[in-house]
């Protein structure tokens, strides 16, 4: 019973840590005109918080349906798929196509296409196959396939268009359009609301297909539901910053380590907070303490990648 309390304390501790890093992010070394710097930092903070939370929860939910702790949406090719969709849209519509001036429309179209493809390609896969290595292989093949088609399309593009596209695809912390940030924030809040309401269902899904069916759950419907949630979460984080393969993996893996009781009402806040802290605190440390702005994504990918390989070597046991 003591351990349960410890889980709550840890969530409280992480929340405090997140708050402190957010404040540091906003006010540390602030120079010049506050009215210019503060809003800029504020929107930046919003962006990376949304990305951190979305990646953490998306990976957690993904682990829940796949019954393992290795696969992530990114490893399964979700992000490459999103990038392929972006590239294909530029390819066919041209970079000058301005979506009637609406970033929101563009995002809506991109994520709807993404949703359709994810359901079409992956739904059957997670209902039948339980073999981790086969799933991993299929995921990697999908990822490479999507990435190669993107590359092909990019080669055919005119150099000027390619240049613009390239700027949009790299994982980087530049300031997106505030209206897109607000849209993503709203969308993410809705998704988190849905996720939270289903937390007990997710606990049962995590027991495995047979147990879930035996306990009266329509498993294939639940898998579809989770895949929809995951693809929109991925669309949000990829649209705002770009592909961050291992951020969600880091957050979810650490969430399991820090939680004694693997129930979703504890894991969901834990994974969201950790994803957020990694990005915000990491950015503060790199930018202000080590003086290397912008390299955060690389550091996260590096650490996350090593952790991923280590776990894979241990056959997914943790």
């Amino acid at each position: 019973m003591k351990l349960f309390k410890q889980d709550y304390h840890r969530i409280a501790g992480l929340s405090a840590l997140m708050l402190i890093s957010a404040l540091l992010f906003l006010f540390m070394d602030i120079q010049g005109s506050l009215s210019y710097a503060l809003p800029r930092r504020f929107w930046m903070l919003m962006t990376i918080m949304i990305v951190g939370i979305s990646s953490g929860i998306a990976t957690l939910l993904f682990h829940t349906i796949t019954h393992n702790r290795i696969l992530t949406p990114a490893v399964m090719g979700f992000e490459s798929l999103y990038i392929l969709i972006k590239t294909a849209l530029v390819f066919w519509l041209g970079s000058s196509f301005n979506w009637f001036g609406s970033t929101i429309l563009k995002f809506a179209v991109e994520s709807s296409i993404m949703l359709g493809f994810v359901l079409m390609l992956y739904r059957g896969l997670f209902q039948k196959t339980e073999d981790l290595h086969r799933l991993l292989l299929i995921g990697i093949i999908f990822g490479v396939l999507f990435a190669s088609i993107s590359t092909l399309l990019q080669r055919i593009l005119e150099p000027a268009e390619f240049d613009i596209l390239q700027g949009r695809l790299f994982a980087k912390l530049t300031l997106p359009d505030p209206s897109l940030i607000l849209l993503c924030l709203g969308l993410m809040s809705v998704l988190i609301g849905i996720t939270w309401r289903q937390r007990y269902l997710f606990d049962v899904i995590a027991l495995g297909r047979t147990q879930a069916l035996s306990l009266g759950i329509d498993h294939s419907k639940a898998v579809t539901k989770i895949l929809i949630l995951v693809s929109v979460f991925v669309a949000i984080s990829t649209a705002l910053i770009g592909p961050l393969t291992f951020l969600g993996f880091l957050a979810a893996t650490l969430a399991y380590q820090l939680t004694h009781n693997h129930k979703h009402y504890l894991l969901i806040p834990m994974a969201g907070l950790l994803g957020c802290i990694f990005l915000v605190a990491g950015q503060v440390i790199l930018e202000h303490l080590m003086g290397m702005a912008g390299a955060l994504t690389i550091v996260i990918e590096f650490i996350g990648g090593i952790l991923f390989l280590t776990l894979l070597m241990k056959k997914g046991r943790l």
Partner: peptide, 8 residues
């Protein structure tokens, strides 16, 4: 075959 992934 009842294997669990999480800690319960």
């Amino acid at each position: 075959d009842n294997h669990l992934v999480g800690r319960l």
